[in-house]
Design a protein around this nucleic acid. Structure first.
Length: 377
DNA sequence: AATGCCGGGGG
DNA sequence: CCCCCGGCATT
């Protein structure tokens, strides 16, 4: 029941502890091989680390370029932001190491990239009972096997567990097969990391972690004045997505409007199953202001000023006019007004409230199977 | 499986 | 209009 507040730290250490173990097992099947295996491994680890840091750097650069175009003004490095960088770096590390290793299942590997990133990103996890979606890096198809973590040389030393029933792996060959190009670190050079806001009804995507943080802070948490000050009380619900660089611009405008509505992000006790796979999202649960709690549904309408909010299915124009939306801040206009339906209101509706038995107490609309008029959200 | 509700009927 | 419902999306 405890809320598994997954901080980046946790995730990181977790994987880097578990996984190397497994990998190592595969390596160290035979005693003779043990030594060579280990050295090999260490080498690889080093290489790998180098590689990773490099890509992080690249990434940072790219990000800076883009961000200057898109959203955040040239970020100044507040202490918070430095922090964020660390976090993102960690994220990148994990994700980088993840994708290449996992050998994609029979599914066509490349289709995942072309398919809408909604698909690539959110995979309704059929395994988890209650239909929570889980996050998978878009590049690798959902894969049951565990990802390989950023390896740190230490973790190997710590995890020598030679007494392990090497199940089925009797050939030295097998391990080679598995691990010779297992870390092919062919990082997709055209990959770009974006961050997507997970707040309800908001699918905003920004190029920097700091960006969405800011976005969330201002838009969702209603902290407008205190631009970048963070007291650690915010919950930033966003997630990382990766996509081809050449489709970035496109992605920004044709973003899928439907947010993966978690059952209201800022509510802790109800959802204990915050999937730990979600690569990032600092979850510091402290007491929340009532404002931030109700914010996601109400506030977002007010602030719909960016083109990404394509959501054709606005909720009710919460009382005031809805005469904005023709702003098109970014280059491309909201492409298709693809007629989707409205996100489906949050609150309970007549049916839920009164039940089937008391159907006559429903509002007419509900009776007609139309949009409820009594409990508008 | 249950809900919410759009589209499309009949009267 | 008022009322109902098929069917789809979402949960």
């Amino acid at each position: 029941m405890t809320f598994p507040a997954f901080q980046q730290e946790d995730v990181k250490s977790d994987i880097s502890q578990k996984l190397p173990d497994q990998q190592f097992l595969l390596f160290a099947t035979k005693e003779e091989d043990l030594k060579t295996a280990e050295t090999k491994k260490l080498n690889r680890a080093h290489e790998y680390e180098k590689e990773n840091t490099r890509s992080v750097c690249l990434l940072e650069q790219k990000r800076k370029v883009v961000s200057s175009n898109i959203d955040v003004p040239p970020a100044r490095k507040s202490s918070e932001e430095l922090d964020m960088d660390k976090v993102t770096a960690a994220m990148v590390l994990t994700s980088l190491s993840t994708s290449p290793l996992v050998r994609s299942p029979p599914v066509r590997p490349n289709e995942s990239l072309n398919g809408s990133w909604k698909e690539g990103g959110f995979v309704p996890s059929s395994t988890s009972s209650s239909g929570y979606w889980s996050w998978n890096a878009p590049s690798d198809q959902s894969n049951p096997s565990t990802p390989s973590p950023p390896l740190s040389a230490d973790s190997f030393k710590t995890f020598r567990t030679p007494s392990q029933p090497d199940d089925g792996i009797d050939e030295g060959e097998t391990s080679n097969l598995l691990f010779d190009e297992p870390i092919p670190r062919k990082r997709k050079n055209s990959m770009k990391v974006m961050f997507k806001c997970l707040w309800k009804n908001c699918g905003k995507v920004l190029s920097t972690a700091a960006g969405i943080q800011k976005h969330i802070r201002t838009i969702h948490l209603g902290r407008i004045g205190e631009s970048d000050y963070s007291d650690g009380e915010e919950d930033f619900y966003y997630t990382e997505i990766r996509l081809n660089t050449d489709s970035v611009a496109d992605g920004l405008s044709s973003l899928s409007p439907v947010s993966p509505s978690l059952a209201s992000p800022p509510s802790f006790p109800t959802q204990d199953a915050i999937r730990p796979e979600t690569s990032c999202a600092k979850t510091e649960t402290k007491l929340m202001t009532p404002l931030s709690r109700s914010a996601p549904t109400n506030l977002y309408l007010v602030h719909t000023d960016h083109a990404y909010q394509v959501s054709p299915t606005h909720n009710r124009p919460a009382g005031s006019g809805e005469q904005k939306q023709s702003h098109t801040v970014l280059s491309s206009p909201p492409r298709v007004a693809f007629g989707l339906r409205k996100p489906r209101g949050e609150g309970k509706k007549c049916r839920k409230v009164y039940g089937m038995e008391n159907r006559d107490m429903w509002c007419t609309a509900c009776r007609w199977k139309k949009a409820c008029q009594r409990f508008i959200d």
